Computed example of a mutant assay.
Amino acid sequence: MRTAVITPAAGRHRHLTLQHLGLAAGSYAPDQYVVVAMDDPDLGAVLAGREPTATVVNCPVKSGNLPLARARNLGAARAVERGAELLVFLDIDCVPGEKTLERYRQVAHVAEHRRSLLCGTVSYLPPPGPYGYRLAELPTLAEPHPGRPAPAAGELRWGEDYELFWSLSFAVTADTWHTIGGFCEEYEGYGGEDTDFGQRARAAGVPLTWVGGAPAFHQHHPVSDPPVAHLRDILRNAETFHRRWGWWPMTDWLHAFADRGLAHWNPSTGRWAVGPAGDCLPSPGERSDPERTHG
């Protein structure tokens, strides 16, 4: 099964370099490594002369907000055009385990899982030491994130809660990718596009399968909780999601913004907006995301 790894990228070149080294050290080398540069003209130099050979696809940033959904779609289109049968998506911060690609391929070969949305575990690494991370030590540095299923190596677990899907590390066959329809490109900037993709998979009748033995290791970088730097992106993308699916995503963050006076719920418009405006929030019956750490 010809396999492509697809990574959207904008900066974080050290993280991308370690991901590249992780792919080279794996038990199975991808047939394609497609890196989608979102207004990052220096990526070619970062990737040059390394194996596996990378193909850089340019994705212009038109509004100042990173078009992550469009970048993944462009990367998938290039990979499929060149014959990829299995698409493995890794965020730029994620380093695959030694057997991650081999495990995704193994599961995708099984008839009952060929149409599945395959999700491996993700472990969030502590800050690196003065000499950076060592590939061989990554599995010893952190356990899989507790907010997602973590089957043991060799095990699979059917999932029913598509809200748990995240785009840090997942795989689909090319046929399943077309069934889902890719990522919705109405989302720009941080937040929402992966939750939307999970709902598109659910609506298309694509099973969700959590895959043991396909780990990814998320390299440390500074984050804020809630992610106040992405306030406007999250409000805009949450509204897009609500319009498309009828419920609010990322409500833990939205309420955290409201607690800090950074955003408010306007009951007369039924919308979230920037800035404080009293203490009117959606009723307790509104749906809320499960615990998530992202970025």
Rank of each mutant, 00 (worst) to 15 (best):
A10E: 09
S268R: 13
V88Y: 08
T251Q: 11
A25G: 10
A153I: 07
R50P: 15
D252Q: 14
C280E: 14
V80K: 07
I92C: 11
R292I: 01
V61D: 08
W272V: 08
V46E: 09
R14K: 08
W272S: 04
P149C: 01
G275V: 06
A108M: 13
T195Q: 02
L21Q: 14
S116W: 14
H294P: 04
F241K: 01
W177M: 09
G44E: 01
L21S: 09
V34P: 05
E188S: 08
L90G: 01
E81M: 08
A142F: 02
R114H: 09
P222Q: 10
A54Q: 01
N237F: 00
W265G: 02
N237H: 02
G213R: 04
R157M: 14
A54S: 03
T53S: 13
V206Q: 15
A204T: 08
E137I: 01
T55S: 05
W247E: 02
Y104C: 13
P151M: 07
Q219Y: 08
E160C: 06
D225A: 13
D42M: 12
P67R: 07
D259G: 02
L66S: 15
L125C: 02
P96S: 06
P282G: 11
T121K: 09
Y162V: 00
N65G: 04
A142I: 07
I6W: 00
D225F: 15
R243E: 13
V223R: 13
G246M: 03
F197V: 00
F217D: 06
V61I: 08
D42Q: 13
P276A: 11
A76K: 00
V223D: 12
R271G: 13
W210G: 00
S283T: 06
G26Q: 07
L156N: 15
G270K: 12
V35D: 05
R115P: 05
D40P: 08
E193P: 00
S123W: 03
A10K: 10
G278N: 14
T173Q: 12
G75F: 11
G198A: 00
E81Y: 06
A10V: 02
D259C: 05
G246L: 02
G278Y: 14
W158C: 15
V36Y: 02
L168H: 03
Q32D: 01
E51W: 15
C94R: 11
P96V: 12
